[in-house]
Computed example of a mutant assay.
Amino acid sequence: MPPAMDLFEYAVVRVVPRVEREEFVNAGVIVYCPQQQFLRARLELPAAKLRVLAGPGLDAADLAARLAAFERICRGRPDGGPIGQLPLASRFRWLTATRSTVVQTSAVHPGLCRDAAETLDQLFAQLVQ
């Protein structure tokens, strides 16, 4: 009998360099699987693609810092600030809440997986790379 499948949820992390234009580039994926006590983001700043959309005013260092905050919050350590100290589900809901900023997330999508880390890698390859 194959191992049981666990419910997981994911969202795509998007960088929207000019919010008024509603153009974005996928920069990562966040996966949450409560049964596996798993919350992790895999992120990559697509600087070359973003320069095409944003022009020369792109602040890559600021964007990299914003993306790094997502990873710190997922890890749930003190360097994640007050949000990083919340329970796993609350951190995921906070990270995926609707916002009108330069870094946004897609709608949350469900799925089933055996290994949440492997699923994160697969989604990152399909949706970002």
Rank of each mutant, 00 (worst) to 15 (best):
A107R: 04
A47M: 12
V25Y: 09
Q129P: 15
V16F: 00
R40Q: 10
Y10C: 04
P82L: 03
D6G: 05
D121Q: 15
G81L: 12
R72Q: 15
W94I: 03
V12M: 11
L50A: 06
L58M: 06
R21P: 04
Q104E: 05
I83M: 04
A60D: 10
P17W: 00
P110R: 01
G57A: 04
E20W: 03
L88S: 05
M1D: 14
L63T: 08
G84L: 05
A125L: 15
A116Y: 08
P110D: 09
A116R: 01
L123V: 14
A117S: 12
A54N: 00
A64D: 06
S106H: 07
E9T: 10
R42M: 06
L95G: 00
V52I: 03
L112H: 13
T96P: 03
G84N: 10
A48I: 14
L53A: 03
R40V: 06
A54I: 07
G76R: 13
E20I: 01
M5Q: 10
R51I: 04
R21K: 10
A60G: 09
M5S: 05
P87C: 10
Q35L: 15
M1W: 13
L39W: 02
L7W: 09
P2Q: 14
L45R: 04
P56Q: 05
R40I: 05
R99T: 08
P78V: 12
A27K: 07
C33G: 05
L7C: 05
E44K: 07
P34A: 08
L95M: 02
T96A: 07
I73F: 11
L39Y: 02
L67Q: 12
A97G: 01
G28R: 02
R99W: 00
A125C: 15
T105G: 02
E23T: 09
E118L: 06
R14I: 08
Q126T: 13
R93T: 07
T98A: 00
A68N: 05
A41E: 06
A65T: 14
P110N: 09
V16Q: 01
M1R: 15
C74Y: 09
V52M: 08
V29I: 13
D59Q: 05
L43V: 14
C113V: 11
R93F: 04
T119W: 11
L120A: 15
A27H: 12
A27R: 09
R93I: 01
L43W: 04
A117K: 07
I83P: 03
A4K: 06
V13Y: 04
L53K: 02
V108H: 07
V31R: 01
T105H: 02
Q126A: 15
